[in-house]
């Protein structure tokens, strides 16, 4: 069976607009026509670059750029900068949306042009940060630099709920904090942050809901795993495994 589950999705517990990973995206509202040059960074290192052309009056007003794909192509030796095009509809900005399909993430994006700039480390008033929260539990949301905090409770989506349509929940982020400061959503729902005061948003799983009991693992070769019952006279100078220290 050719099947690989993206562990990055299963393990994702933190979502940052200033360090983009899986299940999170940032949309830049490109309101000015022109040519731009973009750089994708992870930490201090530039991992990919691209060219972007924003036109006026076209059909495609949304452009999705997979940063994992872009960084992977650069690692693979692609030297030429990738070129992207997007067009703004009448009275609407063009949206350039950055997301990460897989991998560890932690990307920042900087776009520079003659008339406009974008830096994912500090979002602008029309930029949008979106997360998809799939794992049930209690999440904290935090805005930097204001330090405002809020909570998101994610309810487990049951297997019997067939055909559930995930919803998008809007959260305004202003100088006074999150609005609403608390929200309850269901697994696979999205949370859309409109960051009106600039800055960055971080969402973190603070208290995961305990998972259902997993079936016991089948021991295929019990004799190979046996520790007790060692043959008489056989000694071992090294401990097997590491015993956790007892709390005092």
């Amino acid at each position: 069976m050719a099947l690989r589950i993206k562990q990055s999705i299963i393990n994702a517990t933190e979502f940052r607009s200033d360090g983009l990973g899986v299940l999170a995206s940032i949309a830049w509202a490109a309101e000015t026509v022109g040519r731009y040059r973009g750089t994708v960074r992870r930490g201090d290192a530039a991992v990919a670059s691209f060219e972007l052309e924003v036109d006026k009056g076209g059909a495609a007003s949304q452009l999705d750029i997979d940063l994992n794909d872009l960084a992977g192509a650069s690692l693979g030796g692609a030297r030429a900068a990738r070129r992207f095009q997007v067009a703004s509809a009448e009275g609407q900005p063009a949206y350039v949306q950055f997301f990460v399909s897989d991998g560890p993430g932690g990307y920042q994006v900087v776009i520079e042009g003659a008339k406009a700039n974008f830096d994912s480390r500090s979002l602008g008033p029309r930029d949008v940060f979106t997360t998809v929260l799939v794992r049930p539990g209690l999440y904290t949301m935090e805005h930097k630099p204001s330090g405002a905090k809020g909570e998101i409770a994610v309810e487990r989506l049951e297997q019997s709920e067939k055909g559930y349509e995930p919803k998008a929940h809007q959260v305004r982020v202003t100088a006074r904090g999150f609005d609403p400061p608390r929200l309850a959503i269901r697994g696979a729902d999205g949370v859309v942050f409109a960051v009106e005061g600039g800055g960055a948003v971080r969402v973190r799983l603070a208290k995961p809901e305990p998972d259902e009991k997993q079936p016991p693992r089948r021991r295929l070769y019990p004799e190979a795993l046996r520790i007790k019952g060692r043959a008489a006279g056989e000694t071992s100078s090294k401990p097997v495994g590491k015993r956790p220290a007892k709390p005092r």
Partner: peptide, 27 residues
């Protein structure tokens, strides 16, 4: 997951969330 509308407008959806899939390919 994803694919829901982020910015709805009277004329349709201006911005839609990207879709991210659990598996590499069709299982």
């Amino acid at each position: 997951v994803g694919g829901f509308c982020i910015i709805p407008t009277p004329f349709g959806c201006a911005l839609r969330a990207p879709r991210v899939c659990f598996f590499e390919d069709d299982p």
